[in-house]
């Protein structure tokens, strides 16, 4: 290399490094905190033009022929999560639970959008058959455990807006229909769809799959809130997290709508255990083990119970629970959480 060229070379490299580090805010972080702020993860997050760089790489991959970004299949209409493990998760623990407490248990395993919209996947893509998975788990349940076939319900509503396009969760609409079939089995008459007033909270909702892939060519989602003016009212909400007990005023967290995790609107920040009481004057109490799929189904269930205790499946061993105080138990989980927790 000639000297001028060498100088130009060093200048270009120097500018890129300076721009990436200083403009990105690493230095700011460094001043604020201490030396330990310089970690690889921190640098990655704070690199200048982080999102643009990420898109540069992922779009190039897509052009070359890759069909997914960070484990999420990119299709024209929606982002579809790749389901990883083919096995794992059985009903053993649930059976043991029933033997111990003899309270009726209702199990709802919810497939992810990838199972329902399989035909949208790229040709020959690797995909786990979630229908089979759910069937095999259901087949392993003993007496006292009743299984609700969410797969069939959702499958039949395929043409409707039952899953978000950019988020891994189902919509309130999808949750409502599964609630309808579940609550009948649990001995109640479902509140009819007409009674609900639906308000659009946001038409620009970009969910967790978007956050993961930053792929913006898929249309953003609509986030809905269902309210039943004539139904039961919540009287008390207690949120347990570790040693802390916090009294919440509202079930929904409107603050979350201003953040990236808009889905947290439904149930607020995740915690270990929530106890919710309503003004319904019956002695029905539900113990609900759920993952985040349950967040938007809970408002529907609250129309039937005096008290619901919501336990976060992923943290269920942390908190103290007294199942004998409850009249019914429901386990509501997505396949992936189920596999993680009951492997």
């Amino acid at each position: 290399m000639k000297k001028q060229c060498g100088l130009a070379y060093l200048t270009v490299i120097f500018l890129i490094v300076i721009y990436g580090v200083i403009m990105g805010g690493t230095v700011k972080n460094f001043q604020k905190a201490e030396c330990s702020a310089i970690t690889e993860e921190n640098l990655k997050q704070n690199l200048g033009f982080h999102d643009k760089l990420f898109q540069l790489k992922s779009r190039t991959d897509l052009i070359i022929g890759e069909k997914m970004i960070q484990g999420v299949y990119i299709t024209k209409e929606r982002l579809l999560e790749k389901q990883f493990s083919e096995t794992g998760g059985n009903a053993e623990k649930l059976n043991q639970f029933y033997e111990k407490y003899h309270i009726p248990v209702y199990l709802v395993l919810v497939p992810s959008a990838t199972a329902i919209y399989e035909s949208n996947l790229p040709a020959n893509a690797l995909n786990v058959n979630q229908e089979e998975l759910i069937k095999s788990v259901y087949a392993g349940t003993g007496t006292g455990i009743r299984c609700i076939d969410a797969y069939a319900v959702l499958r039949s509503l395929k043409e409707n807006y039952i899953y978000y396009r950019t988020d891994s969760h189902w919509t309130s609409y999808g949750a409502y229909h599964v609630y309808q079939s579940a609550i009948q089995k649990m001995g109640f008459t479902p509140v009819s769809y007409q009674k609900y007033v639906i308000s659009h909270l946001s038409t620009e909702f970009r969910g967790n799959l978007y956050q993961k892939t930053l792929y913006d060519a898929v249309k953003p989602d609509v986030l809905d809130c269902y309210t039943n003016e004539t139904g039961s009212k919540i009287t008390e909400i207690l949120a347990y997290d570790g040693e802390k007990v916090e009294k919440r005023e509202e079930l929904h967290d409107t603050e979350a709508l201003k953040t990236e995790n808009m889905y947290e609107f439904y149930l607020g920040k995740p915690c270990e255990k929530l106890i919710i009481r309503t003004d319904l004057d019956n002695d029905k109490k539900l113990l609900l083990y759920q993952d985040s799929y349950g967040d938007c189904m809970l408002p529907f269930l609250l129309q039937h119970y005096h008290e619901i205790c919501v336990v976060n499946l992923e943290k269920m061993n942390c908190s103290e629970i007294h199942p004998e105080e409850y009249t019914q138990v429901m386990v509501l989980s997505s396949i992936s959480t189920w596999q993680q927790v009951f492997s």
């Binding site: 060229c5 130009a8 270009v12 890129i16 760089l53 990420f54 790489k57």
Partner: peptide
């Protein structure tokens, strides 16, 4: 063409950074 080497390698470095933060 070597004149453009700084720019070409600048681009290459940017793509490397993109790859490093990607995965």
């Amino acid at each position: 063409l070597m004149m453009f080497l700084p720019l070409v390698h600048g681009g290459l470095l940017i793509f490397c950074l993109a790859s490093m933060l990607y995965g």
